[in-house]
Design a protein around this nucleic acid. Structure first.
Length: 218
DNA sequence: GACCAGGCACATC
DNA sequence: GATGTGCATGGT
């Protein structure tokens, strides 16, 4: 069933080439900036960082917080995200010295460590691990939860960990597959699975149950 | 103008 | 433990 969903989404949208970004640092920056934010706005913010020539771990660590906030302004929640971002890069620098070194860590251990950083929740941590670190770990986001629950693949009360376990145990543990799968869900969700769904034309529409969930919350 | 966006932390009951 | 709220810009 998860494989069928993948085939359908892939047939509709093709490979997504995620994560958009030219370096591991850029991907990490993107995961923080895109928290509850349209990717287009995140791109503007990253463009500003590139233009200011501060897309380096050490530079971001030492950049004045207000300057950082001003540069990432287009990404929204900019004062908050400036703190979270600097928090994270300083943590990486202090604890590991470099991104390369950080990604030599064991998956479970590093995930737990990242979750201790203020501003890094489960989705951001998993995105960093999968897309920057190329660990085989599945990313859950709001679209994933909506799609899985609306199709009745999982109970409506399922939390992040339950969803993650569901996808990871239902798919072969393949980093490239996890990469493409999450990207395709986001693409599908953006077009068809907003809070108020627009199922006409959705590649997963034929997989909806006859008397599927009537409650469209979340 | 209303709604939404590739979350997360913190306050309050 | 569950639920509510702040954070903010920009597109549709």
């Amino acid at each position: 069933m998860l494989d069928e969903a993948f085939q359908r989404m892939f047939a509709s949208f093709g490979p997504q080439h995620w994560w958009p970004g030219e370096s591991q640092l850029e991907i990490i920056v993107g995961t923080v900036l895109t928290q509850s934010t349209n990717w287009r706005n995140v791109e503007r913010a990253i463009d500003n960082l590139r233009a200011a020539d501060v897309l380096q771990l050490r530079k971001l660590c030492h950049l004045d917080l207000e300057k950082l906030a001003e540069l990432i302004r287009p990404a929204g929640f900019f004062r908050l995200k400036a703190k979270r971002l600097q928090n994270l890069v300083r943590f990486i620098d202090d604890r590991f010295g470099s991104i390369q070194r950080m990604f030599q860590s064991d998956l479970a251990e590093l995930r737990g460590t990242l979750l201790e950083v203020n501003g890094i929740g489960p989705e951001t941590a998993d995105s960093i691990l999968l897309y920057a670190g190329e660990y085989t770990t599945f990313v859950i986001d709001a679209y994933t939860a909506r799609i899985a629950k609306r199709h009745g693949w999982i109970e409506p009360e399922a939390d992040y960990q339950a969803l993650k376990t569901f996808f990871e145990s239902g798919l072969s543990p393949d980093m490239q597959l996890f990469n493409e799968y999450h990207a395709l869900i986001v693409m599908t969700g953006k077009q068809y699975c907003k809070p108020t769904p627009q199922c006409e034309g959705c590649p997963l529409q034929s997989m909806l149950q006859e008397s599927g969930p009537v409650d469209w919350r979340t």
